[in-house]
Nucleic acid binder design. Sequence first.
DNA 1: CTGTTAGCGCATTCAC
DNA 2: GTGAATGCGCTAACAG
Lengths: 328, 328
Amino acid sequence: MATIRDVAKQAGVGVGTVSRALNGTGHVSPETKKKIEDAASKLGYTPNELARNLFRNRTGIIGLIVPDLHHSFFSCFAKYVEMELYKQGYKTMICNSIGISDREKEYLDMLERNIVDGIITAAHSLDGEEYLKQKKPIVSLDRDFGSQIPLIGSDHAKGGRMAAELLIKNGCKKILQISGVSPNVASNDRHTAFQQIVESSKIELLNFIMDWNVFEWNAYYEQISNYMEQHPDIDGVFSGDMGAIVCMNWALQRGISIPEQLKIIGFDAMDITQMTYPVVTAVKQDVPLLAELCVNTLLDLIEERKHVPHRQILDVEMQYGGTTLSVE
Amino acid sequence: MATIRDVAKQAGVGVGTVSRALNGTGHVSPETKKKIEDAASKLGYTPNELARNLFRNRTGIIGLIVPDLHHSFFSCFAKYVEMELYKQGYKTMICNSIGISDREKEYLDMLERNIVDGIITAAHSLDGEEYLKQKKPIVSLDRDFGSQIPLIGSDHAKGGRMAAELLIKNGCKKILQISGVSPNVASNDRHTAFQQIVESSKIELLNFIMDWNVFEWNAYYEQISNYMEQHPDIDGVFSGDMGAIVCMNWALQRGISIPEQLKIIGFDAMDITQMTYPVVTAVKQDVPLLAELCVNTLLDLIEERKHVPHRQILDVEMQYGGTTLSVE
DNA sequence: CTGTTAGCGCATTCAC
DNA sequence: GTGAATGCGCTAACAG
């Protein structure tokens, strides 16, 4: 492995000049520059990033913590985060917390160990205190850590309201709401908002709370279809995408007609809601924009480009599919 | 940020002793060790990984290149790769190549720049030469680079044969095969194997080759449903999971009954094939095991633990769903 | 404009 | 058993 010294020797100049020439910092005469470039390419010189990192005390790596990469929403989010970071010259280190707070902690510690320059977290197993202790930049998706850590998220409350109103307009009389995340994340706002509207309309509401951090299809399927089996008179469901799809599956198997006998609304409106027949009506988040905002907010923090807002909440919209009746 | 010097000063010893005490390398008397540990915790000392990296010329980071993170198979693969690497004390850096060879190249270059200790690649846009040039460890999923780079993959040929035989037993007379990946990956083996069997049975076979590296649902949907529209007498389809689901959707919309009028077999058998109704019959890969093998093969290479095999091919099995007739 | 030097923080020889 | 010195490869400050 050729070092900068080798290049300097080969070109017959000092190492400082090589550094300046190759990095374009400081002035170097065209001819020596040429000599250096020739020497570098002859030796196949590549700067050792590790030495640079040590000197600069930065790595150009951002940590991304998600509960489960193999979940439609998070894999989409991760994809766009990586793409945006790439565009801005950063690399992405990824972590599945899979509901284990130790894992989340260990990745968080990489901030102190200087392995990553900042963290985007979408997980929620670890105690908030741990995040607040950190000195280096963190941004959060959908979990409110207070004013210390910028929050980016969707308007879950609006999504919950829209869903409630649509189910009510659809004439539902007994509605089930499936929630399944930890209590301190923004996605809970949709359920409180939903609940408020449904209850104020004097419509019967059931709440099914699933285990936290369960993201596997089989677990979803079993838990939810069991529940549905015990409450076959439910005529409206509001849930995350996966839960919505389970309900649809269950109904189709039982010969329950959709949307006539059962109305279903999902949340996220990822690809999977379009793979079913009919398409699932669902509240849609703008995932690419969420990712972009997370990245840019974090980089603003890291590069101290400007003051960043505490909260950035994106609008949501309804994806009208075939699991609800069209209403005017 | 406290350094090892600060700890040494605080404990009244030399830096070498601190290093030895904290890393457990070399002998240190119990009392000085105690002093050092106290000093370290008092100062809140965390070793700077960057300095370590430079010294060791290693980072403990592995690069993972996939075409598209928001694709069921790759997000699942990435999840298990990350989990296995974590278990073994490594971190995961991720890249979406999204079909752009420059991106693949740039991540590959991180090997030379010492940012990653090794690479697991599941992408296939970049010329094979570039991979072969590299000196540091690489393993490949499903793409054969020759004997220089270990290959891990599933038995695609067997999967193709199984699919062909099942469709033939199902009585199909006009079969469509949808392929959509670049020519130098193992997944093509399934199509050649499939084709051989179908053609030797004198059954009509259509081939629809999609754009490479297209992984978006909308693009899939449009291209494939258009094709189906032009060939409505097709009665059997073999495709990747997504293509299979598109066909099912199209059929359901057109009122074509499944599996009576149209039989469909997917490949991968990811979660999405179970979210539809009926479940899609599909050839199933063992993704967790693929991930584990990739990781262990790569780490064997990195840590020179042992000689690694050139090719490791995993068995596949059929997931029988409702898009084919049951045959005995 | 350019060569030399001094760290970045750590792990590891060497002497003691 | 322990301290001091050396170097990993690079960049930036300082002389020339």
